[in-house]
């Protein structure tokens, strides 16, 4: 599935919720179901700065596609990380770099996008794109 297709699916999922409780309930469920990051990757260097809760993001590149895993000590943050992984993981660096972040606004999580000191959504997206950029550069050098 293309990145845009996944984000459209997520937008549809969120559209079906009537109130904020349903929306957060869903995020919390996503948070609880997020596959844990491998313990050995829960290290200082994988911590994303700028979050009130701790978020670890780990990336792996098989030469073609980038795979992300993440964890957080806050459930909502973990739910958001889960959404981002669903959208961006398993795609090429080029696709990840080109993908729009509009879907975050459309699902009504804009409060998480505001550049406040408290949340890490922006930092997570930035980190995901940074990994993609690094792998793209690596690819270019290897070729």
């Amino acid at each position: 599935m293309k990145i845009e297709e996944t984000s459209d699916t997520i937008i549809n999922e969120f559209d079906s919720f009537d109130d904020w409780m349903d929306k957060y309930n869903y995020l919390i469920e996503l948070g609880k179901s997020l596959p844990m990051i491998d313990e050995r990757y829960k290290v200082e260097s994988n911590l994303i700065s700028g979050c009130q809760s701790r978020v670890w993001l780990h990336a792996e590149f098989d030469g073609k596609l980038v795979y992300f895993t993440a964890d957080s000590d806050a459930v909502i943050t973990k739910g958001i990380a889960n959404l981002l992984i669903r959208v961006y993981s398993g795609h090429s660096p080029q696709e990840i770099l080109a993908a729009s972040t509009e879907f975050i606004k459309e699902i009504g999580l804009t409060e998480h996008l505001s550049p406040t000191r408290s949340n890490g959504l922006l930092s997570m997206i930035k980190q995901i794109k940074m990994y993609a950029l690094a792998y793209k550069t690596m690819q270019a050098i290897d070729n």
């Binding site: 009130q52 809760s53 806050a74 459930v75 909502i76 943050t77 408290s118």
Partner: peptide
């Protein structure tokens, strides 16, 4: 329960607390 989680939900209910 992580303070950030609690603060986020309290905000949805119009309650402004500080977390962190």
């Amino acid at each position: 329960i992580h303070p950030y989680d609690a603060g986020t939900i309290l905000d949805q209910m119009g309650i402004a607390v500080r977390t962190g």
